[in-house]
Design a binder for these strands. Structure first.
Lengths: 346, 346
DNA sequence: CTGAAAGCGCTTACAG
DNA sequence: CTGAAAGCGCTTACAG
């Protein structure tokens, strides 16, 4: 029943076929195809030509089962269709490919149950490692993952448990820079549309926001700090409510660009113009990758660098280098000023 | 060397462990965990509890090697960081997961060599099937893929070779609707920023464009039809050149929303306002998923439906249903009118 | 430089 | 209802 054998209608060429047609053993064929030093150059040439001729494609399933390495990683993010994550996924896939790693992509939708299944799915595929942006409050899932012994790196968020490797942005600085930018322009009532406080980056951006406010001697009003879902459409209701409540504010600092866009979209629906009536600052600087025709001031967090670094660390873990070190990387952030913020000063 | 065995530091539980601890054979354990009918309920319970207790995670590598099915698919697109593709990838991953399939994601960057490697990478991982948006002029790669016998479905683009399954949008209709919309509003010189004609959707959108122009008795000017790269930033130079050449046009129809946004971005740089000075229509209706604060008129092409359909067809191929049928699905398109288009008539 | 054997962890096909 | 054996296609470790 070769037909049912993973390669479907056409039976795939195996080492055995090459062995039979060249007169060597499977062992020698295997070693020749991997350019091992102890095989004669003539034999290597002969075998590789035959492999080429037969269109041989190695069965990594079999080799992985024996060798214990699959050359596969999994990337688990909240939602690939969020540009922030899709850019990260792209960069990781690209970095992985240069090292002959193939990438599984799994969405957690910020849901712990879905995330748990994603992790088990990855484990059952014997991935060599996992890069994961942990969903809200998923400390438990990460500890389960940690106990399996499979190498993993947290991306963009870290947990209280600091025995795990992570690569994050300097979120506190980002929050600080965004807020200072608005304060410098005379804004004092700044609505912070933040993500849930169980997300480390949300907590740290708030610390930056608070620090900036304090520097300007402005008391932080709790009603100006709103936690909303960072899934597309999540800030809609909250912002509508805020607008209805007649809460006073002249600027919005949004947890990410998606939320910032969404806010602007909603403000426009209410005939409120940006930046004329309200200034808006985002986070992620998606505009560095996509030419969105709305010039949003935003905190840049080098997604390429962050992603590559996460893969690099993962690779070290896979190859058990520096196993006594914890990698806690904080990538710098900076503010990119565009035209969504206006000064209230003359 | 359990350490080096794919599960790293912690040795993974195997069927053998469960067998030893329950007194059954590996065979029975395997069958019990799969709820086979010929195992007694008591045994099933006993074994499943033990599996739970030991935190057993099946090794799909081993089962796949034997059974020939990996429950894995690959999705190959030009670039996941393009929202059009990231949305498709998300939808496919979601559909696949409901059937216990895991998804590899690979980028081809519209490059045939990269694409070829991606295909071989997928094949060597023994994926059960592939969903691929073929890169420009990659008929050859698709034919190689076809000869391997691995089930695959083309997504968004089809080839001259119509023996392959595909799911596409009604691109001709989309091109027609976009153009008619502009013509109805008095635009006669419509710059079409199209993708390369080796892409079927580009050819068909052009047919729609041409048909609409003919209906209005307006000759199609070749200098108004420009083929640009559909990678981010690709339309930049071309549009700058067009603007420098003083070519007359009052509207732009862009191959996709990314290009439309990019065009608006560039027009703005030249102090040309949309829609006041130039009207713009895009394709993909990304705004249905992301609240981009620029209301772009765009052709909608039900990405959710298209993606799910592609997976559905792939699944049929994997399970060898209706193998005498060719699936050539054309999903309807419609125009979503927003505020990036203005009427020239009074 | 090459070969023979064992084994990775499962599932299949068959025996009882 | 359960078991014993073979085998999926490789790689490893060792023999010569």
């Amino acid at each position: 029943m070769g037909e049912e054998n993973g390669r479907h209608n056409v039976k795939a060429t195996t080492l055995k076929d090459i062995a039979e047609q060249t007169g060597f053993t499977v062992n020698t064929v295997s070693r020749a195809l991997k350019n091992k030093e102890d095989i004669s150059a003539t034999t290597i040439k002969l075998i590789q030509e035959k492999a080429q001729e037969l269109g041989y494609i190695g069965n990594t399933l079999a080799s992985s089962l024996r060798s214990g390495m699959t050359k596969t990683i999994a990337v688990i993010v909240a939602d690939v269709s969020n540009p922030h994550f899709s850019i990260a996924v792209k960069e990781i896939e690209r970095a992985a490919r240069t090292q002959d790693y193939t990438t599984f992509i799994l969405n957690s939708y910020e849901d712990q149950e879905v995330e748990k299944k994603a992790i088990f799915s990855a484990l059952s595929k014997n991935v060599d490692g996992i890069i994961i942006c942990p969903s809200q409050g998923s400390d438990n899932n990460m500890e389960i993952l940690q106990r399996t012994g499979t190498p993993f790196v947290l991306l963009g968020r870290h947990l209280d448990n600091d025995t795990m490797d992570y690569v994050v942005s300097d979120d506190e600085k980002g929050g600080y820079l965004a807020t200072i930018h608005l304060l410098e322009r005379g804004h004092q009532s700044i609505l912070f549309l933040n993500a849930h406080h169980s997300i480390s980056s949300a907590r740290e951006r708030l610390i930056g926001y608070t620090r900036a406010m304090m520097e300007y001697g402005i008391p932080v009003k709790s009603e100006l700090i709103r936690e909303v879902s960072n899934i597309s459409g999540g800030s809609r209701n909250e912002l509508n409510e805020v607008l209805k409540s007649k809460l006073e504010f002249t600027a919005i600092f949004a947890f990410n660009d998606m939320m910032a866009w969404e806010s602007i979209f909603i403000l426009n629906k209410h005939n409120i113009k940006v930046p004329e009536n309200i200034s808006v600052v985002g986070f992620d600087n998606i505009q560095s990758r996509m030419f969105i025709p709305f010039p949003l001031t935003s905190v840049s967090n080098s997604k390429g660098k962050t992603s590559r670094k996460a893969f690099e660390i993962l690779l070290k873990r896979i190859y058990k280098q520096n196993s006594d070190v914890r990698y806690h990387e904080v990538v710098d952030t900076r503010l990119v000023i565009r035209e969504s913020t206006k000064s209230l000063l003359l």
